[in-house]
Design a protein around this nucleic acid. Sequence first.
DNA 1: CAAAATATGGAGGTCATCTCCACTTGTCAA
DNA 2: TTGACAAGTGGAGATGACCTCCATATTTTG
Lengths: 189, 189
Amino acid sequence: MTADKPLRADARRKRDALLATAREVFDAGDFFDLRFDDFARLAGVGTGTLYRHFPTREALAEAVYHGEVAALCDRARELQATLPAAEALATFLRGMVDHIAAHKGLARTLATLMADHSGALAEGSRALEQAVTDLVAAAVRDGAVRDDVDAGAVMMALHGISAAHDRPDWRAEADDVITLVLDGLRRPL
Amino acid sequence: MTADKPLRADARRKRDALLATAREVFDAGDFFDLRFDDFARLAGVGTGTLYRHFPTREALAEAVYHGEVAALCDRARELQATLPAAEALATFLRGMVDHIAAHKGLARTLATLMADHSGALAEGSRALEQAVTDLVAAAVRDGAVRDDVDAGAVMMALHGISAAHDRPDWRAEADDVITLVLDGLRRPL
DNA sequence: CAAAATATGGAGGTCATCTCCACTTGTCAA
DNA sequence: TTGACAAGTGGAGATGACCTCCATATTTTG
């Protein structure tokens, strides 16, 4: 699938420049106010080069998203190794909210692109979903969490949190959603 | 706010044609594959007329969304009048999922537009949010639901459900989210 | 019925997107 | 090192979607 061909030195440099700039612009939330051509120039790259590396805005977002997801997955594994399952899950979900809060612009940009062209990012989040699924499964094994609800539901709730980025009282509501999910996950009675 | 000026007869006719066509196209999910000009022609209307009535795609979506929201709010009021609060809330949320399931294309289109230009539809959903808030408040008064969680969290969860429209196992997961929310809403212990 | 007000439609200007290719840069074998 | 081939670059310009503008048509009013 990912038949990584060895990239030439300058190509790699340009590519990295593009990704770094993308990260900044995403985070600042300016991505959609920017002509794609201008974005290229901003990264110090010609239009053609931009298009060679990332044929669409979505492709660019996907690449940035990959880094995000990888970091989150590492964190999930780390938590799972060091905490009781239920606590690991709770900590991870709370941490997700922190993470999104700290990168609102990025979350906003990714959510927008995901909505448009959802297939593209869906593949990228497969890994994240796996991590959540593992956390939930471990908690189920511990008996701390009901087994009649799919981990996909948790993904959906997270999706809602990051998609609703512009609600005035976002932070408090996001925390509440996590509370509801965690309390709801405890087996009834 | 809505200083409705009396619309001329033919104007109203064209406007209705546009809305009807929009509804169809939204529901079919073809909205973004269509040039806006072509959409006008599809509705039997000139480009200029389309732009007069709906200056942007979002404006059009908002108008369609209004109808949706109105219907849902009516339903909420009806449930609230005829069922115990907790049951009304549960029935409404389950009904929401049914409704979205029955109009996937519409939900998808609205979610995409909402992500892009969220302010536009946020105003439209104010009414829906009020309805949900009322349902939750009534259930709180009954003592059936905890009072330390904002109704906004429920909106967020709903948002997640409709934003995650393309998950392969959407229906089951959406039901699970509702289950988690409802169980989570019961006061802890 | 005439005139004033209101609305229509589509030709054409404007501007972001993306392609294409003459040129530059990197790699590698001798 | 050097030359020659491969890999990559950049930006001018074609393309096509979006939206404006206004001469014309329809409705309403006096």
